[in-house]
């Protein structure tokens, strides 16, 4: 079982998502939450980095945080799964450990 990483910073504000992608081994998962959901959006300066990462890691985005910010599920990068808090819990249980990238 691999690790679940959570990222809660916008890639426009901090390098957290970039660091996480650089240190997540293939087969692990990344959940974008809080301001981190901005990293899930398509057609941004950072979308290509996210798409490239998806060759190795599975990426999820927290739906309630998208909605709160008026961001449409339809505008997230193709292949990113939109999940709720219950799914967040399931993801932590399915992976061996959780690293929160603070």
């Amino acid at each position: 079982m691999s690790m679940l990483h959570t990222v809660n910073k916008s890639p426009f504000e901090r390098n957290t998502l970039e660091s996480c992608i650089g240190l997540a081994v293939p087969g692990s998962a990344i959940l974008l939450m809080e301001d981190g959901v901005i990293g899930a959006m398509a057609n941004t300066k950072h979308s290509e980095m996210v798409k490239a990462a998806m060759a190795n890691v599975k990426i999820y985005v927290l739906g309630p945080d998208l909605k709160a910010r008026g961001l449409s599920e339809g505008n997230v990068v193709d292949g990113i799964s939109v999940v709720g808090y219950g799914d967040f819990v399931d993801l932590t249980a399915e992976h061996a450990a959780v690293q929160s990238w603070l």
């Binding site: 690790m3 081994v25 692990s28 450990a97 959780v98 690293q99």
Partner: peptide, 10 residues
């Protein structure tokens, strides 16, 4: 990256 993946608690 490999060392991180071996951890139980981070």
């Amino acid at each position: 990256a490999k060392v991180i993946d071996e951890q139980d608690v981070v």
